[in-house]
Design a protein around this nucleic acid. Structure first.
Lengths: 355, 355
DNA sequence: CTGAAAGCGCTTACAG
DNA sequence: CTGAAAGCGCTTACAG
């Protein structure tokens, strides 16, 4: 059992309030040097540590932030969380984690639990473009920051990748390689990431080929943010009479699934089909082949989100505008010049064994 | 501002203690049906939710577990944490996360912070074989469970992979493939994982070749649990006059680094050198080549650890013996029969281009 | 069946 | 310079 303030004050022969003042190094304190020394000495001897729960009840501050994340086992979110925890620890804040699996019921449950625990603010990596739970938080003036995804229209308390610019860079890279049949494996379009990357895809292709481009005919397939979605979407694309020579996947996991489908169909990446991902997951550089992708500064995004939340909660400073984290196209081995299509050549040709 | 119990009791025209009893569905409660209904109704209307901080101060229970993890950005620990959070949420417990980067100072700081927050128990993924911080916790009777690593000798509050059996399976697999020069890239030997996997390596080779085996001459190199360590260790091995034909790495990250070094040297995996990892990381199956590895049930390990801690803290049930999670050798593409060594053939030969 | 009170361990405005 | 008191929002043993 750790020692309490009261016990300490008994030992020191001083009133608890005096002890508290000394321990807080209250600037207005004017305690005699001798008494202060005695108190400090005893606190050290008995390793006195204030009970945060009691302090929180009194001060109405917990120094805890609640985090809602779809799935911490997804390495992207793990990096973001690492950044959050580092930035929080720096200011003696702690992080309580809740996984939601993108299920509104789990989100609601997590939010309620976090509020019951009186967290000082929330970090949400779960925003949908129209998100009633988040609108509710805004109405209640609960301090929160959105990370990675934002609601529509974007608000100053958002810290997100520059999805649009990243997707434009990816598509332009493919165009420069000579690709003309460029597909997009889209994510959920109720998430800003999925929506913006898809929009950038459509806009870039349209502006590049204003005369003939037709949104309806675009090689746009709904996938998901996960591997299985990328796999299924790619199979759909491969069955087209005239399949794409390049694919921009909404993220690295979907790209991974797409590559599986391509290889399974006996085609090669990048010789037959180029693939670009998004995020630059921990292992994007270890995949077969190494993935060309749009790098998002995951960890820094977590850091910045917490810094903004601390500004709001501790310093009362509201952000003026959303923070778009800069992204970078990293060209690796999964993209190559468009193959020369021989008219009439089978698009389902087997990869010729190299030997 | 959420409503408090006191405000609610005013509205109900009943005493706070009565309201509390109704809300807790106290079995011994014998409140008139009418009053109970009125209170319940008002609580619903005003969305009354008890303040956990106040409750915790009173009950001396926070329903929070503290977690010490080396690095949540490591996908292995991310999976473990996911399991922990799932199992905790099931019982309305929350998780506060602290990253330590395996630095004792950060561990001490994290532990102090978690204790100040009055967590009900600790989940430690940071144990060293001789760990004074953990010995201290044991002395103080703080409830805690060790995950993935344990102190020496192993105690009942440990939930760890069956490291020894997994490593034996890996080595036997290589022996069956005809390998005789089998190296080990070891991890830190002050961690049970590193220590046991190394011991299993030595024991298995020794028993397989009792006459000629010499511990001192074993192809044992100190690496680390991270990629860079595997890379450096492999380079050392490749410079030997008679390099190994197979390598058992202490974990998948080290295996990844080793594969880099092998490929960089112009050799092939598995044709020239077989590689086995440990853990089966999320991306072990996506690496080039797909990694043969010992699968550890990461998520389940987190779940079981929390269940044990809940048993201890909530139900007062102490575990009788440590829990060794079963592991499985997964044979993929990074292992193959030992190459036929031609006497005098250069071991640093370039891979012959396949075409 | 319900009320009144104590108290968890702090912090802080109020006195003197 | 330091003490005495109130109170954060609960829970629970004690009365009646």
């Amino acid at each position: 059992m750790p020692i309490t303030l009261k016990q300490l004050s008994l030992l020191a022969g001083a009133h608890p309030s005096t002890v508290a003042r000394v321990l807080h190094a209250d600037p207005r304190q004017r305690v005699s040097a001798e008494l202060r020394e005695r108190i400090l000495q005893l606190a050290r001897e008995h390793d006195y540590r204030p009970n945060s729960v009691a302090r929180s009840l009194r001060t109405k501050r917990t120094a805890v932030f609640g985090v809602l994340i779809p799935d911490i086992a997804n390495p992207f979110f793990a990096s973001v969380l690492r950044g959050m925890e580092d930035a929080a620890a720096e200011r003696n804040y702690s992080i309580i984690l809740t996984n939601t699996d993108d299920q509104p019921a789990r989100e609601a449950h997590g939010l309620a639990m976090l509020r019951d625990r009186q967290v000082d603010g929330l970090l949400l990596a779960t925003a949908r473009l129209h998100d009633s739970a988040i609108e509710q938080l805004a109405r209640e003036q609960t301090p929160f920051v959105m990370v990675n995804r934002h609601t529509e229209p974007i608000t100053p308390n958002a810290v997100v990748p520059d999805d649009y610019a990243g997707a434009v860079a990816a598509i332009e890279h493919l165009l420069e390689l000579g690709h003309r049949r460029i597909a997009h494996i889209a994510g959920a379009d109720d998430a800003s990431t999925g929506y913006l990357r898809r929009q950038a895809y459509l806009d870039t292709l349209r502006s590049h080929n204003a005369d003939t481009f037709d949104d309806q005919a675009a090689l746009l397939v709904r996938g998901s943010f996960r591997e299985a979605g990328g796999y299924t979407a790619m199979r759909t694309l491969l069955e087209l009479p005239d399949p794409p020579t390049a694919v921009f996947a909404v993220n690295d996991l979907a790209a991974l699934g797409a590559i599986h489908a391509i290889i399974e169909a006996g085609l090669r990446v990048p010789e037959d089909i180029s693939v670009v991902g998004f995020n630059d997951l921990f292992h994007a550089s270890h995949m077969a082949p190494n993935l060309t992708t749009v790098q998002v500064p995951h960890r820094a995004m977590g850091v910045r989100a917490v810094e903004r939340l601390l500004d709001m909660v501790v310093d009362g400073v509201m952000p003026e505008s959303p923070l778009l984290m800069p992204v970078t196209l990293i060209v690796r081995q999964s993209t190559a010049p468009a193959p020369q299509r021989q008219p009439g050549a089978s698009t389902h040709r087997r990869a010729t064994p190299a030997s």
